[in-house]
């Protein structure tokens, strides 16, 4: 079947999608967006977390057909998403999100809001780097999407809030302390910026 939906602000069409296929598979294997990771395919690890109409979900548990007509944001689009949020959609005069309908669309540097290629990092991404919260990096995309969403709704999270918001994301490397640091850092910087 064919599925039409929006990914990181750009209309996408996926063809020959198997009816039982997950959104994660479509993103990674059909749309060339490997940022969302596949580790468990059963909702346990959160490394495939994306936003579906704004809501964080495990993309491995969403059937591709269920996203028809809906909006998905992946880690690749997070920086642009955060930028638009920070300055209000039009104020910053961005949005030259080109409507590229070509199926064989390729990432084109220097800057692309769809793949995230060459764009500036979002505050949460920068905080993860600065706090040393990335080791192997496999869990990072899912954590970034989940943490960014929490900070959107809760700019001053307690440690308990952070733990709860990230309780669906597993990390096998860091022991989570640096991840906590990163989110606290992003929250603090967000506070300063206002």
């Amino acid at each position: 079947m064919r599925v039409n939906f929006t990914v990181n602000g750009r209309p996408q069409e996926a063809d020959d999608v198997w009816e039982g296929e997950s959104l994660l598979y479509v993103l990674r294997e059909r749309l060339g967006l490997p940022g969302s990771k596949n580790a468990c395919e059963q909702g346990e690890c959160g490394s495939c977390t994306v936003r579906l109409d704004g809501v964080p979900v495990c993309s491995c548990l969403v059937a591709a057909g269920q996203v028809e007509g809906r909006e998905v944001v992946t880690v690749e689009g997070l920086a642009e998403y955060a930028r638009q949020r920070a300055c209000g959609t039009d104020a910053c005069g961005m949005s030259h999100v080109t409507r590229d309908t070509s199926k064989n669309w390729q990432p084109k540097p220097p800057s692309d809001s769809h793949t995230g290629e060459g764009t500036e990092l979002s505050p949460i991404q920068q905080a993860f780097i600065d706090a040393g919260a990335v080791q192997c990096g496999f869990c990072t995309p899912g954590l970034l999407v989940a943490a960014d969403e929490m900070l959107e709704h809760n700019p001053n999270p307690t440690d308990a809030d952070i733990r709860e918001a990230l309780s669906g994301n597993l990390c096998r490397c860091t022991g989570y302390e640096k991840i906590m640091d990163a989110v606290r850092l992003a929250a603090a910087r967000q506070g300063e910026a206002v």
Partner: peptide, 22 residues
């Protein structure tokens, strides 16, 4: 509906329904 039970079964090939009713 949410797919949090159904998709696990499909991903692991425990279930191959003839029709999925979204």
């Amino acid at each position: 509906a949410g797919g949090t039970d159904v998709m696990v079964e499909i991903n692991f090939d425990h279930r191959r329904p003839e029709y999925l009713l979204d």
